[in-house]
Simulated scan of single mutants.
Amino acid sequence: MTIASFGPQTHMCVGLLGGSFNPAHQGHVYISEMALKQMGLDQVWWLVSPQNPLKSKKGMAPLEKRVKTAAQVVKNPKIRITALETRLGTRYTADTLKALHMRYPNIRFVWIMGADNLATFHRWKDWQVIFNMCRIAIYHRPTYALKALSSITAQRFRNKRLPARMAPVLKQKDNGNWIFLPIRGNTLSATEIRNRLEHKE
Rank of each mutant, 00 (worst) to 15 (best):
R165I: 09
I193L: 03
R161S: 02
F157M: 00
K160A: 00
T187C: 07
P182R: 10
N195W: 11
M166V: 14
A167F: 09
N195P: 11
N186P: 14
N159P: 09
P168S: 03
M166R: 14
T191W: 05
K160M: 00
K171N: 05
V169D: 14
G185Y: 12
A190H: 07
F180D: 07
A190R: 08
K173F: 05
I183T: 13
R158W: 04
A164K: 12
N177V: 03
M166L: 10
K173Q: 14
R165D: 13
I179W: 12
F157Q: 01
N186T: 15
N159V: 01
K173L: 02
P168A: 00
W178K: 12
T187Q: 15
D174P: 13
G185L: 06
R194K: 06
I193M: 01
M166K: 12
S189E: 11
L197Y: 15
A190K: 07
I183C: 14
R194P: 09
A164S: 12
N195V: 07
A190W: 05
N175S: 03
L162A: 01
N195L: 05
G176T: 08
L170E: 14
S189T: 14
N195R: 11
A167S: 14
K173V: 06
R194E: 02
N186I: 11
K160T: 03
N177Y: 08
N195F: 06
P168R: 04
Q172E: 11
W178D: 09
F180K: 10
A164D: 10
L181P: 15
N186A: 07
L181Y: 10
I179N: 10
L197E: 15
G185C: 07
N175A: 01
G185P: 11
N175V: 01
P163K: 00
P168N: 04
N177I: 00
Q172A: 04
P168I: 01
N177Q: 06
M166G: 12
E192S: 10
N159D: 08
A190D: 08
N177E: 05
R194W: 02
R158M: 00
R158F: 01
A190C: 04
K171Q: 07
L162N: 07
A164M: 09
K173C: 07
K173E: 11
K173G: 05
F157P: 06
R161V: 03
R194Y: 02
Q172M: 02
T187S: 12
A164P: 15
I193W: 04
A164I: 08
S189W: 11
T187D: 14
P182V: 07
L162K: 08
N195I: 09
D174C: 00
S189Q: 10
R196G: 07
L170V: 13
L162I: 04
L162H: 06
L188Q: 15
I193C: 03
N195T: 10
A167C: 11
A164N: 13
K171M: 02
R184L: 08
N175T: 07
W178G: 08
T187H: 14
I193Y: 04
L197K: 13
T187A: 12
N195K: 12
R165E: 11
G176R: 06
P182A: 04
L197T: 15
Q172G: 08
P163T: 00
S189N: 13
R161P: 08
L197M: 13
W178H: 10
P182T: 11
